[in-house]
Write a protein that binds this DNA or RNA. Structure first.
Length: 155
DNA sequence: GCCAACGTTGGC
DNA sequence: GCCAACGTTGGC
């Protein structure tokens, strides 16, 4: 069992959108960063859990948890000229971008804000999200860090 | 809106 | 392979 954190801008796609999807499930499309892609493609397994993090909003923070319900497959938006995520260099015979399907597992009763996480950096171990200059949209989370944040959210 | 930090691109 | 220019992310 691995733990992850996945960022999304709520103005584009947030927890309210995920909550209203059929089976509360959605393909996590549009990731166009190789490091993030590699983690989704090579390391994410069915039943892994991920925090849903709202970025580029006020306030930013973790709003709930998701479960990986389908392992990686090529991102179809990369092949669609109408999509804002279209990438002409991604060939269906040799796809460049991959995604996983996620299902909303739990909406936190209260958001755990980035500011709160920063305040508790000493309790959270090595947490990529809090490293200076970090911009990864998909990142691993250590089990102990995961547990601590779930506690902060109210169990 | 600003801007630091980072990733990508492309000329050489 | 180097690196300057440019684009993006995302907190503030």
């Amino acid at each position: 069992m691995n733990y992850w954190l996945m960022k999304s801008e709520p103005s584009v796609f947030g927890i309210d959108d995920l909550a209203t999807r059929p089976k509360r499930t959605e393909p996590w499309d549009g990731v166009r960063n190789y490091q993030a892609r590699n983690m989704m493609r090579d390391q994410m397994r069915r039943h892994d859990l991920a925090f849903l993090y709202h970025s580029n909003c006020e306030p930013p923070g973790i709003v709930g948890t998701m479960e990986i319900v389908r392992e990686s497959y090529p991102d179809p938006t990369a092949f669609d000229p109408e999509s804002k995520y279209y990438d002409p260099k991604s060939d269906p015979d040799n796809p460049r971008w991959y995604l996983v399907d996620v299902r909303l597992k739990r909406r936190f009763k209260r958001m755990v804000t980035l500011a709160e996480l920063r305040d508790r950096v000493d309790e959270l171990g090595d947490f990529t999200l809090l490293r200076r200059g970090n911009r990864l949209s998909v990142m691993p989370v250590e089990a102990a860090t995961w547990q601590r944040i779930v506690e902060l959210a109210g169990g």
